[in-house]
Amino acid sequence: DTCAICRVQVMDACLRCQAENKQEDCVVVWGECNHSFHNCCMSLWVKQNNRCPLCQ
């Protein structure tokens, strides 16, 4: 699966965690819609949006 926000494989660290060298801290979360995201990506997304980027 791919993170619906950053488009990186969810089993890999997101771009932000890769840049900050925090790959082991990058975890996967699932929305109520069952789409998967990196927690970092979702945390930033929900500050500006309240819907899944794929379900909009």
Rank of each mutant, 00 (worst) to 15 (best):
26 C>D: 08
21 N>Q: 13
47 K>A: 09
11 M>I: 06
29 V>Y: 13
39 N>I: 05
1 D>P: 01
48 Q>E: 10
20 E>R: 08
41 C>G: 05
1 D>E: 08
11 M>R: 07
53 P>R: 05
38 H>P: 03
16 R>K: 15
22 K>H: 06
7 R>F: 04
26 C>W: 03
14 C>H: 01
7 R>Y: 06
4 A>Y: 10
54 L>E: 14
16 R>A: 10
46 V>S: 08
4 A>R: 10
37 F>A: 13
47 K>Y: 05
55 C>S: 02
40 C>P: 01
7 R>P: 04
2 T>W: 04
25 D>S: 05
56 Q>C: 05
39 N>P: 10
49 N>F: 04
31 G>F: 05
34 N>A: 09
24 E>K: 13
27 V>R: 14
9 Q>H: 03
3 C>W: 01
53 P>A: 07
51 R>G: 14
43 S>L: 05
11 M>Q: 11
3 C>G: 03
44 L>C: 03
32 E>S: 07
54 L>G: 12
50 N>C: 02
32 E>F: 03
6 C>L: 00
50 N>F: 02
39 N>F: 00
44 L>N: 09
20 E>Y: 02
6 C>V: 01
28 V>A: 14
26 C>K: 14
17 C>V: 03
2 T>F: 07
21 N>L: 07
21 N>S: 11
51 R>W: 12
52 C>N: 02
55 C>Y: 03
5 I>Q: 05
35 H>M: 00
21 N>T: 11
14 C>G: 04
54 L>M: 14
35 H>K: 01
4 A>C: 07
10 V>W: 02
52 C>G: 03
17 C>M: 01
41 C>S: 01
43 S>V: 10
16 R>E: 09
9 Q>S: 10
55 C>P: 02
22 K>Y: 08
23 Q>I: 05
52 C>K: 02
44 L>A: 14
21 N>E: 12
42 M>C: 05
2 T>A: 00
30 W>P: 14
47 K>N: 09
33 C>N: 03
55 C>Q: 01
36 S>L: 06
25 D>N: 06
53 P>F: 03
21 N>V: 06
55 C>V: 03
18 Q>L: 08
53 P>Y: 07
50 N>D: 15
22 K>T: 08
27 V>E: 00
36 S>D: 01
18 Q>S: 10
33 C>D: 01
55 C>W: 03
20 E>D: 02
13 A>I: 14
7 R>N: 15
41 C>Y: 04
27 V>G: 05
5 I>D: 02
7 R>L: 09
55 C>R: 03
47 K>Q: 06
48 Q>S: 14
12 D>K: 04
16 R>L: 11
27 V>S: 14
47 K>L: 04
34 N>P: 10
18 Q>W: 02
47 K>P: 07
50 N>P: 11
18 Q>D: 08
19 A>M: 06
26 C>Y: 07
10 V>C: 11
42 M>V: 07
34 N>D: 14
8 V>Q: 10
14 C>L: 00
5 I>V: 14
25 D>E: 13
19 A>V: 11
30 W>K: 15
9 Q>G: 11
11 M>T: 11
28 V>R: 14
34 N>H: 10
54 L>W: 05
42 M>T: 07
14 C>R: 04
12 D>L: 11
43 S>D: 10
45 W>H: 08
8 V>M: 13
36 S>V: 13
10 V>P: 09
45 W>A: 14
11 M>F: 14
